[in-house]
Design a protein around this nucleic acid. Structure first.
Lengths: 131, 131, 131, 131
DNA sequence: GTGGTCTAGACCACC
DNA sequence: GTGGTCTAGACCACG
């Protein structure tokens, strides 16, 4: 369900948070559903409970998780919308930064659009390769 | 000539490397020109010489700089082309990553294109504001 | 009769105790009246009996409840006065703490009084909204 | 400079954050000033570096601290204003909650005001006792 | 059982 | 030297 890359430069706790957001977006995890306990997930992923705890408390700060004392941690109401909006904002910002870079080095608008369509072609290719 | 943001999350040595590449792209620095010595630049920017040294050696690895023993460090022949190609590759790769993210979260191709055109509009707006 | 917010940071057993005190203040519960048994209330509120038990024993310590062996738990004589006094003491103490904080950070006496009157205005507004 | 009460129910890392905010309010710590390093403060207070680190990163999220990689942690520009505003908001909210409580239990507006003035009298008394 | 907090000690990139 | 991250193991209040 969750695969973590410890040799990655992205902190493990962020990777975990990201994976949960992905699962929420895919409706694999829905509002009100319980998520594994800190200790449980720690043993599954062979990680330290503190690392899981950090991931969970970040998600709680972002209103994606809700913890009920002594009971467990749950997907908060409205979590999917929050996650979706934050992702859209992230994509928009990332694109803006790339466009700024491109302009900065006089890489033409058309070349940028071409790269975009190439990226989509590659993605489709990947889908076909898999099927 | 070079402004560094030490409270930025981007490592200072990368920022320095980036600035040199920018100057080369703008023809402010040309093939064969000498760049300041490590110590000189360190005092100018009030940074640790180690940081400058790291930036220079990265640029050397990328065939942008060339060090001649006992003489100094110079912009290598063909540097501009190398820099331009590396920038194009970077932009292409960045766009690919963003597109992958967007697909991953079911953000439509059209929305991505819309964000791109918005980014360009904002850029033009900024230019007009300045002028 | 009693609504508990499990996702609140206030411990559930404290919320229960508070609710009983409220009911006593409103004369919804009077001296000598019997309160539900631990198990009964636990099933009504779908909470763990331990939680109810803890709430009851706290109320007993405060001389609000009285347990008669083999018979049940009752509102103790003089409970209302005790509750009222404890509430007044709590309000007084809370105000003292806030005033200390305010002084500590050089927030003027007048600003504190202004905030108080604003709080009362908001309360009245809420009443009007409801009516 | 900083006294921590480990037997208090308030987490140590929050107490540390609070103390720094106090020092900023008293101008004992000003914009741009460096704060002790994580390890340094940890040894001074005989606490674990992680605890200090948590306090510092909370303050950074609140725009009170600013960390410069490999250099240290500093009071951010505008920190005092941020701290002051957050304190005012806290005081206001605390007062609102107390007023709501008071109304809930039919403790009169005048009694509340009386408690406030008593609190101020006690504070002055404390000052006189000290002097 | 649950999550929250703390200690102890380690490794990393960066300056 | 700096902060950021992670592991390991412990204690606590709460349910």
């Amino acid at each position: 369900m969750i695969v973590i890359n410890t040799s990655n430069s992205i902190p493990v706790y962020e990777q975990i948070g990201f994976k949960f957001k992905e699962l929420i977006m895919k409706d694999a995890l829905r509002q009100g559903e319980k998520v594994p306990s800190v200790r449980e997930l720690a043993t599954i992923l062979t990680l330290n409970p503190n690392t899981i705890s950090k991931a969970y408390s970040e998600l709680e700060k972002e209103n994606v998780f809700e913890t009920i004392r002594g009971s467990g941690t749950y997907i908060k109401n409205g979590a999917k919308e929050i996650v979706f909006n934050s992702f859209k904002a992230k994509i928009k910002n990332d694109l803006k930064l790339v466009v700024q870079d491109a302009e900065n080095f006089h890489i033409d608008h058309n070349i940028v659009l071409e790269y975009i369509s190439e990226a989509y072609k590659e993605l489709k290719g990947d889908y076909n390769d898999r099927s």
